[in-house]
């Protein structure tokens, strides 16, 4: 068991995989998130890869507000990601609803539906800020593996 834990720790530290879900954002945060993965900011040097399958992911990056139709999908994706996982809310809308908080179809921030570990404010946040959030979440993942029941 100890061996598996050590293996998991190395794996997660060197290659945290990321699932990105646009949950009703205006696209600003999404394209900044994608910009983080492309050559200028190059998150891949830390082993971060954007994956399409929730079952492969360690980090769940959510942008945008929650509305009445996507809350179910958000929750589904959250449940499909295996433990240990870290949830990142990117952008003012994901934090509180932002400028859309009063719009008729908006429920609010991401943390109304799923627990959030790291909040990154900004409209949209700068790529450096998103990158730092992703690196912070790697530390958090390590903690979760060390102190978890796995």
């Amino acid at each position: 068991m100890k061996f598996i834990k050590r293996l998991l720790l190395t794996g997660i530290k060197k290659s945290p995989w990321l699932l990105h879900f646009d949950c009703g954002s205006c696209n600003g945060c999404d394209i900044e998130t994608l910009a983080v993965l492309t050559p200028v900011y190059d998150a891949e040097r830390f082993g971060v890869i954007n994956v399409g399958n929730p079952k492969h992911a360690d980090i769940f990056l959510v942008t945008g507000t929650v509305n009445r139709k996507n809350q179910e999908i958000l929750n589904n994706l959250y449940l499909q990601i295996p433990e240990p996982k870290v949830i990142l809310a990117v952008g003012t809308c994901a934090l509180s609803g932002g400028i859309f908080a009063e719009a008729p179809n908006v429920i609010g921030g991401v943390d109304k539906i799923i627990p959030v570990d790291i909040y990154i404010p900004g409209c949209p946040p700068k790529p450096e800020a998103i990158l730092e959030g992703v690196l912070k979440s790697v530390e958090l993942l390590e903690d979760k593996v060390k102190n978890g029941k796995i």
Partner: peptide
């Protein structure tokens, strides 16, 4: 329906100058 916010209706509670910030966020691109 997965990104629908209904921001056209915000014009009833935000004045014509503040609406500029809202329409900028119809689409970030």
């Amino acid at each position: 329906g997965y990104v629908h916010r209904g921001l056209e209706k915000l014009c009833e509670i935000k004045d014509i100058h503040k609406m500029i910030q809202v329409v900028e966020r119809v689409c970030g691109i």
